[in-house]
C-alpha cells in the first residue's frame, strides 16, 4: 500500500502490514470486532500508528475517525511507541493510601520519566494504572516486557529503585 499519511511525501513506501492478514481474515466479517482487531494490532506492533489506523480503515471499511475515536477512548491503546520495559504503576485506592506517589517519585529519581513518558534510551516507559488488583500487596507495580510480566508488591522507594537498577544492569551486560 502507499502511505496514507497526508503529511507525508506520497512517493515514500508505506509500512508493511502483512502480519495483520490472519487477524483481518478472522475478524473482518465479524461485526463488533474493532476493539479486538486493535488489541491484536497493538500486540504485534507495540502501539497503534496512524498508518496502521488508516490501513485498518481501508481493510474494514470503518472510517479512520471512528477507529481513532475508539483507540483514544480506552486506556489500553497507545498511539506512541513504548520502551522495552513497560512499568505499570498501580494507582488504585489501596496503593494510593499506601504511598504509590512515593513510588512514582522513586521512578522519576531513577529514570527521570513521568507518567506516559519513555526514557531516552528507549528502555523504560511509565504508565500509571487505575488498579492492578493486587490491593493487599500495595503499593504495587508490574513490569512488562516481551519475556515476562513481573509484579512487585509491598514496594518502598528503595525497593522500587533496586528493581529498576537490576534491570538496567542486566541490559548493560547484554550489550
Amino acid at each position: 500500500m502507499t502511505c496514507m499519511n497526508n503529511n507525508c511525501n506520497s512517493s515514500c513506501k508505506g509500512p508493511d502490514f502483512s502480519e495483520l492478514a490472519p487477524i483481518l481474515e478472522k475478524y473482518r466479517k465479524v461485526p463488533g470486532s474493532l476493539i479486538t482487531i486493535l488489541q491484536r494490532t497493538q500486540e504485534i506492533y507495540g502501539y497503534l500508528t496512524m498508518d496502521a489506523i488508516h490501513y485498518l480503515s481501508e481493510q474494514t471499511g470503518i472510517k479512520p475517525a471512528k477507529i481513532y475515536g475508539v483507540a483514544t477512548f480506552y486506556t489500553q491503546f497507545r498511539l506512541a511507541p513504548i520502551g522495552k520495559y513497560l512499568i505499570m504503576l498501580c494507582k488504585g485506592t489501596a496503593c494510593h493510601v499506601n504511598g504509590a506517589d512515593m513510588i512514582e517519585e522513586a521512578i522519576y529519581e531513577e529514570l527521570a520519566i513521568h507518567n506516559g513518558e519513555t526514557t531516552e534510551d528507549g528502555l523504560f516507559t511509565l504508565n500509571n494504572m487505575a488498579c492492578l488488583g493486587c490491593c493487599s500487596l500495595a503499593p504495587v507495580m508490574m513490569i512488562k516486557s516481551a519475556e515476562s510480566d513481573e509484579t512487585y508488591g509491598n514496594l518502598t522507594k528503595d525497593l522500587a529503585k533496586k528493581v529498576l537498577l537490576e534491570i538496567k544492569s542486566r541490559e548493560q551486560e547484554v550489550n
Partner: peptide, 11 residues
C-alpha cells in the same frame, strides 16, 4: 470488567 480501583474479588 472489574474497574473499581481497590477491588479484586472478581479476579
Amino acid at each position: 470488567d472489574e474497574g473499581d480501583p481497590g477491588a479484586f474479588m472478581d479476579r
